[in-house]
């Protein structure tokens, strides 16, 4: 294992110190491992809180700031934050207009956020609504599994719901916007290499030099199939087709196309993939209204890509275009 770390056990704590030093507009509660806006709590604004295991940066801490999240809770690497952290975040950003929890659909995350919401409601009286993202089409959505995993849509949701909250909309409206994003977005990922968790010191799974894992999860969960390595055109098709067949993406209905790197893939390769994606969508008459290309929800050092398509209308597009000022996304300011 080659990593830019000191003690594997100190990675999260030291990264939070670095984030605080690099971004003076943010505040960090080191005891609770919460990154929050320097101007929090904003009176009368719905507070957006997310969080999850660390190792997916810039998700979620990189999305704290104007027009996006009010706070992000950092768990241990690939381990959900605990209720006390989420409770602390709730107290830090509660501006009296209620709190929206954005939770990725993993068993641990859902349970810890659920307990935190119960504790926060009892302790502070704050009204809390949770929206769970579950956009990964690689997992069959059935009562026989923990359900689909929350992946790329989470980034788009945090941006769009964050804009709605910044406009001063109330909790029910912001939550509805968030649900709309989750319902209209689908994703799928592919790994070229495994990630390596610092404390483990070895790759999470074995993948041959000539193999790729289709439908991989952001913690290295196994996907739909292990296939021989293929060119980018084929990979784009393997990822886009299951998305297109999962939701009706109709001719003329615009989308936000999000090509995301999983941590160890260079931007130039993501653009090669984006070029393939636009060809496929162009062939189907699905216009790309906006795009996002880069590594925004990662799996440590995993090489690979995920594709997210979100059906949008003018309302969602105007929220997407609204000003955002965070460490990882910044425009319109």
């Amino acid at each position: 294992m080659k990593k830019l770390i000191n003690d594997p056990n100190d990675v999260v704590v030291e990264a939070l110190r670095g984030i605080e030093a690099a971004h003076p507009e943010l505040r960090v509660d080191h005891e609770s491992k919460v990154i929050y806006r320097g101007d929090a709590p904003k009176r009368g604004k719905v507070g957006l809180i997310s969080g999850g295991g660390s190792g997916h940066e810039p998700l979620h801490g990189g999305f704290v700031g104007l027009g996006m999240l009010d706070a992000a809770c950092a768990g241990e690497i690939f381990t959900s934050p605990v209720p006390g952290q989420i409770l602390a975040a709730t107290k830090l950003v509660d501006g009296g207009a209620g709190i929206l929890h954005v939770v990725k659909n993993y068993t641990g995350d859902v349970m810890n956020f659920e307990m935190a919401a119960e504790m926060a409601a009892a302790e502070t009286g704050a009204r809390i609504v949770s929206v769970v993202t579950d956009d990964d089409v690689a997992v069959q959505d059935s009562t026989w599994t923990a359900g689909r995993r929350g992946v790329g849509v989470t980034v788009l949701l945090e941006k769009i719901a964050g804009a709605a909250a910044e406009q001063g909309r109330d909790l029910d409206e912001v939550a509805q916007v968030a649900r709309t994003v989750n319902e209209n977005g689908r994703s799928m990922g592919l790994a070229l290499t495994s990630c390596t968790v610092p404390a483990a010191g070895h790759p999470t799974f074995d993948l041959g030099d000539d193999e790729m894992e289709l439908g991989v999860g952001i913690h290295g969960e196994p996907g739909r199939a292990r296939l021989p390595l293929a060119p980018a055109s084929e990979i784009a098709s393997l990822l886009v087709e299951p998305i297109l067949s999962d939701l009706p993406f109709t001719r003329g209905n615009p989308v936000i196309a999000f090509v995301n790197g999983l941590g160890g893939t260079p931007l130039i390769e993501l653009y090669v993939v984006f070029n393939e994606v636009q060809k496929i969508l162009g062939g189907r008459g699905v216009p790309i209204a906006r795009s996002l290309v880069g590594s925004y929800i990662t799996s440590l050092d995993m090489a690979g890509v995920s594709i997210t398509l979100l059906r949008v209308d003018d309302e969602l597009l105007s929220l997407w275009d609204a000003p955002v000022n965070t460490a990882a996304l910044r425009w319109g300011i």
Partner: peptide
């Protein structure tokens, strides 16, 4: 609950 994390902590 406050130290384990994941699903095992809440459970």
């Amino acid at each position: 609950v406050s130290t384990v994390g994941g699903a095992s902590g809440p459970l």
